[in-house]
Design a protein around this nucleic acid. Structure first.
Length: 606
RNA sequence: GCCUAGAUAGCUCAGUGGUAGAGCAUUCCCAUGGUAAGGGAAAGACCAGCGGUUCAAGUCCGCUUCUAGGCUCCA
């Protein structure tokens, strides 16, 4: 939970007051609008409206914004009005506000409109009091938390229009949401807007195209990115890196088919939740196959074949295999959300109950080390717990508690900070999500560690424990890098494309001073390649300045110019010596002999 | 999938109903240059696709595909 400092409370009140102002302005321009909700958010506020048949377009925002300023100048103050629930119902019915009425019904039956408070509060009855707030001639249902007067609301700007379902439920009607940025002073607001504009240049889709990492072709299809040479090189380096770490820790790599008969998913229970989300293929004999969306059931088959005794635990299987998921088109984003391939850095650790915490701690340690190596900094942990009010969660409640408290203890023991979120667990168990924000501040899971207390039992997985009795293993599903594709996206955004030397697709570019040295450069390129250096050359007829500039724009770590000086030097010393122009963020020595450079690059090889 | 915007040369963008433009990239020519854009010329576009309105459509209307932001979903 975030701290409740005074300034945050004021920001929240200010922004929430801004939402009232927005609603007032909208209602005075569109008298028949129906109001839903208008909370403060991190950078401002929004309000959800139902405009009926009227279409609101981005051009209309200016008009609304002007109206807001007009109203603000009148300097109304917030006036609190209390009503009994019964009177409030009448009022909202008469003023034709169905959404507020629906909120009121929630207050009556569950004591609150906030989901987190619904279960804690007792229901209320018709004589209980609810509050309305009035500014000018605008009045709406609201629990409160405002500034004294409209004039104290800081500078704001309406930023966008979006659709949003009432109360976030896709069964409800879609409303029109108007977003606004709002800060205490003009400087902060304009800096915020400027930063938002500038973050575009760090977007992985922009850099990914510039650095020739990936592309999306309309003919190949939506959500089906193609990795170009630099992208595949990077992916391959990450795979090698992870595999080396995991094999050292006793993970065994396996390889399982991408096409799988539907009965496996029926046995695992995935079919029940996800059959709509898997690509289905029917063969000539009318067998139904799915393109695999996850590896777990396959690994369970291997466990079943290979493990009999507790002495074989923990048993760690790993795989990097392309997965495909039938995602809805509107959710697809560059490399972050794709239909496939989703090449997961996937592993399943089969443990007994008493091994769970230790293995969990070991996984946390891998996270720490790997993310440090790869330059990923701004991530945080979220413990995702079940919401037993949803149908999604089944199984023995005491096992859920056992698994959740193991994660919690492991996190505390390893001194990791984390938040808890109800209702975010997988259907088979609680999980720890590693969350990260993209350049626009949108949160996503980059990786996950899940505890599975359900599927192994359902699939009948067993081992013999030390008392000679059959027992069901617990499975830790874990992925350190998540999917390589998504990881590359965040790696691009976090480093701005300045990959660490050991992961740079091209480490060195050799640049010839003039045509005279092209052949020498090409020979040297081949020599370096033979030694395992990722090197390329620029022997075009451009000037040196242009070639350096191009290499810099491509974020190549080391640029080496070869001309008369270098060749003469080589002749007298018998060895090349280079003056290296390193990428700005790299602090290596610039004068190196061939063998010194080779040594440096070897140290930065996996 | 839903809401709101978009789609013009390989890339970034201009073009408000009347003969498709610029910069970069590309190709060719000149320059053979020592650390962030040397000079010149040429070539490159059924203006996303299909249909409609109009004497005339890149421009107006409809549908489709794709892209962006948001909602929902995320094993």
């Amino acid at each position: 939970m975030k701290g409740n400092s005074q300034s945050q409370i004021n920001d929240v009140n200010m922004r929430h007051s801004g939402a009232h102002l927005l609603a007032y302005a909208v209602q005075s321009i569109y008298p028949n609008v129906k109001l839903a909700i208008g909370p403060a958010i991190n950078d401002g506020f929004y309000y959800d409206f139902d405009f009926g048949d009227i279409k609101i377009q981005e051009d209309d925002l200016l008009k609304i914004e002007e109206k807001m300023v007009d109203i603000q100048e009148k300097d109304y103050s917030f006036e609190k009005i209390e009503m009994t629930i019964d009177n409030a119902k009448k009022f909202l019915h008469d003023t034709k506000q169905p959404y507020s009425l629906s909120l009121l019904e929630d207050i009556e039956s569950m004591g609150s409109t906030k989901k987190s408070e619904m279960s804690k509060n007792k229901s209320k009855n018709g004589n209980d009091i609810v509050t309305f707030y009035k500014i000018g001639d605008f009045i709406n249902l609201c629990r409160g938390g405002h500034l004294k007067s409209l004039k104290d609301i800081g500078p704001f700007k309406l930023t966008s229009i979006a659709g949003a379902y009432f109360r976030g439920d896709e069964k409800n009607p879609m409303l029109t949401r108007i977003y606004a940025a709002c800060f205490k002073d003009n400087n902060t607001l304009s800096n915020y807007l400027k930063e938002r504009e500038e973050s575009k240049s760090r977007d992985h889709r922009v850099i990914g195209e510039k650095l020739k990492i990936f592309m999306i072709s309309e003919d190949v299809g939506q959500g089906l990115p193609l990795l170009m040479p630099n992208g595949e090189q990077l992916k391959h380096l990450l795979e090698e890196y992870m595999r080396k770490i995991e094999e050292r820790l006793g993970y065994k790599y396996v390889s399982t088919p991408i096409l799988t008969h539907k009965k496996l998913y029926e046995r695992s229970g995935h079919a029940k939740f996800y059959s709509e989300d898997m690509y289905q293929i029917k063969d000539k004999e009318n067998n139904i196959f799915y393109i695999k969306p996850m590896n777990c059931p396959h690994h369970h088959m291997i466990f079943e074949k290979m493990v009999q005794s507790y002495r074989q635990l923990p048993f760690k299987l790993a795989e990097e295999s392309p997965l495909y998921r039938n995602e809805r088109s509107g959710t697809l984003t560059g490399l972050i959300r794709v239909r496939g391939p989703i090449t997961q850095n996937d592993s399943h650790i089969y443990v007994s109950k008493d091994q769970l915490k230790k293995e969990f701690l070991d996984v946390l340690l891998i996270f720490k080390n790997v993310y440090e190596d790869l330059g990923i900094k701004n991530y945080y942990f979220r413990l995702s717990l079940p919401d037993f009010k949803k149908d999604k969660y089944e199984g023995d409640k005491s096992m859920w508690d056992f698994a959740s408290s193991n994660i919690r203890d492991a996190l505390k023991e390893s001194k990791n900070e984390f938040s808890e979120e109800i209702g975010e667990a997988a259907f088979y168990g609680p999980k720890l999500d590693v969350q990260i924000k993209n350049v626009y501040g949108k949160e996503d899971s980059i990786a996950t560690i899940q505890i599975d207390i359900l599927v192994p039992g359902r699939m009948g997985l067993k081992y013999i424990n030390k008392h000679g009795k059959e027992e069901t293993p617990i499975v830790i599903h874990r992925s350190i890098l998540g999917s390589y594709e998504r990881f590359i996206a965040f790696m691009i955004e976090q480093t701005g494309g300045n990959f660490p030397l050991r992961f740079a697709p091209i480490q060195v570019r050799l640049i010839s001073v003039s045509e005279k040295y092209n052949e020498t450069v090409l020979e040297l390129t081949q020599d370096m390649r033979d030694l395992g250096i990722r090197v390329d050359s620029d022997v075009t007829e451009e000037g040196i300045g242009k070639k350096i500039r191009n290499a810099s724009l491509e974020k190549i770590p080391a640029k080496v110019v070869i001309g008369e000086r270098e060749v003469a030097n080589k002749k007298s010393n018998g060895e090349w010596s280079f003056t290296i122009n390193w990428r700005d963020d790299l602090k290596y020595q610039s004068d190196l002999s061939f063998s010194e450079l080779l040594k440096l690059l070897k140290e930065n090889t996996l």
